[in-house]
């Protein structure tokens, strides 16, 4: 650090003046960006979590009050359970569907790019737009239920039964992310040398053995990546339940994000919303660490 200042020390710098100016000019945009859009909010977050503020008055220091409030907050507990419920559906659904997508993509001979792009369209479409689309599609008198009614004489309460509502939302999210996560797994599959399969086949391994003993263990890094991304995704679910179910029925689809948003801007309690955000971040970080510790294996192709 001492070399940054001017003075005699500077003369001993191994870089010339021009080089130093160039160096700083390269890093300054990044440092400034980080300070403004990351550092400043981070400091504010810490201040908010330990104070009481209502957008208008001066923040009042309250020590750990916001954190203590969380222990008696029934809604917060309900949301933790909801999130686990979401994870229980979403992780298997998203892993299996994107793995199937990746495996199928490997088999495709023509138009692979076109198929990949088609699945990615879902990923880049507007959350608001497809949420409205799905809520109409799965409405009680919507097209999906009309088909069910015509074929089996029953209609399914997609968004009004608590478990079904969670399942339906997971279905929408799976639809959105299948293509993207599938590509990550596809890249993993591509890395496995063909010679491994050939050698195993010579040893008499059938397709089942090839999948369970070679493919699955060797795409472990990609699978863990996808799982970690999906966990972080689950902690950030907002648009779909906010627009389709409004967090109901029985508050079963209320997520951390919905709670933060409503608490900050509808209940006018940004301090508590920030505290919820901090704890949510820690929870998701903890879960991600746990998953990585348990499932991550080092894979190397010799």
């Amino acid at each position: 650090m001492s070399r940054m200042g001017s003075g005699p020390v500077n003369k001993r710098s191994k870089f010339g003046r021009k080089e130093r100016i160039f160096g700083y000019s390269v890093i300054i945009p990044y440092v400034a960006y980080t300070a403004i859009f990351w550092g400043y909010p981070f400091v504010w977050m810490l201040i908010l979590a330990f104070t009481k503020w209502n957008f208008f008055s001066k923040p009042r220091f309250v020590w750990f009050d916001n954190f203590l409030k969380m222990f008696t907050d029934k809604v917060f507990l309900q949301i933790i359970l909801n999130t686990l419920n979401f994870l229980a559906y979403l992780i298997p659904m998203i892993l299996i569907s994107s793995l199937l997508f990746a495996l199928a993509l490997k088999k495709v001979k023509f138009g692979r790019t076109f198929i990949m792009l088609s699945f990615l369209v879902a990923n880049v479409s507007s959350g608001v737009a497809y949420s409205l689309l799905f809520s109409n599609l799965f409405a009680v008198n919507g097209p999906v239920n009309r088909v069910f009614d015509a074929l089996f004489g029953v209609t399914i309460p997609w968004f009004s039964n608590p478990q079904l509502a969670i399942f339906s939302i997971c279905l929408i999210i799976t639809w959105k992310f299948m293509g993207y996560y599938g590509l990550i797994l596809y890249a993993g599959l591509q890395q496995i040398p063909q010679s491994l399969y050939e050698a195993a086949e010579l040893d008499g391994a059938n397709k089942k053995v090839l999948f369970w003993k070679i493919t699955l263990p060797l795409i472990n890094p990609s699978l863990v990546t996808v799982t970690v991304l999906a966990i972080m995704l689950t902690f950030g679910i907002f648009t779909e339940p906010y627009l389709i179910t409004g967090g109901g029925p029985m508050q079963r689809t209320t997520t951390f994000m919905i709670y933060m948003y409503d608490t900050a801007f509808k209940r006018i309690d940004p301090s508590y919303a920030t505290t919820v955000a901090v704890v949510t971040a820690l929870l998701s970080y903890g879960l991600v660490t746990l998953i990585r510790k348990t499932f991550e294996r080092e894979v190397s192709f010799v």
Binding site: A139, V140, N141, N145, P157
Partner: peptide
Amino acid sequence: TAVELGTNPFYDGT
């Protein structure tokens, strides 16, 4: 009445 009545139930006579 029902928990869910679908889209535009008033206009389609539901």
